[in-house]
């Protein structure tokens, strides 16, 4: 797979950055505007999918190979779990304790700013990592299996 024509390659090398940035924006502003971790993660994954479609599989193998995507997937999930557990360290003995909001941000009335809502942006980031990596992995795994070829090792 060598990818598509030079036009597609040129355009997508510009577009991919915009898509990636848009994904980061959607993730970071998830607690203020529509969007959030899942939507942002899907957009992040789609930038890599565009890369794979335009440039062929070899380029993605160098940038985000399957094993790295798998690790990122696990890290995202563990990060989300860790955020929910960290509340135990901050005095409250329950899950999903929004410790940042309760301890530090509650004094400053900062609704509708980027730094607000405590742990929610962090969770959004973890979810975006998880969703982006796993969606890209689904795409990669499904696209590398060719019907008709004999079954191959994973």
């Amino acid at each position: 797979m060598n990818g598509m024509t030079i036009i597609v390659k040129n355009i997508s090398s510009w577009i991919k950055i915009l898509i990636f940035l848009f994904g980061i924006y959607i993730t970071l502003f998830g607690h203020l505007t529509p969007g959030g971790g899942f939507a942002g993660g899907v957009i992040l994954a789609s930038s890599y999918i565009l890369l794979t479609l335009a440039f062929g599989k070899r380029v993605t193998d160098e940038n985000l190979p399957l094993w790295l995507a798998s690790r990122l997937d696990c890290i995202g999930a563990l990060l989300f779990l860790a955020i929910s557990l960290v509340g135990f360290l901050f005095g409250a003995s329950f899950f999903f304790y929004n410790f940042i909001q309760q301890k530090y941000l509650a004094q400053h009335a900062s609704d509708f700013h980027l730094v607000s809502a405590g742990t929610i942006p962090l969770s959004n980031f973890a979810i975006a990592l998880k969703v982006g990596a796993s969606l890209f992995m689904v795409f990669l795994v499904l696209s590398t299996f060719r019907p008709g070829e004999p079954a191959q090792q994973e």
Binding site: R71, D73, C74, A77, L81, L85, F95
Partner: peptide, 17 residues
């Protein structure tokens, strides 16, 4: 705490890969 019944195997499931 009850969520541990869910959280512990979930964490282990993501640590193993």
């Amino acid at each position: 705490p009850l969520p541990w019944f869910v959280a512990i195997p979930l964490a282990a499931a993501f640590v193993l890969p």
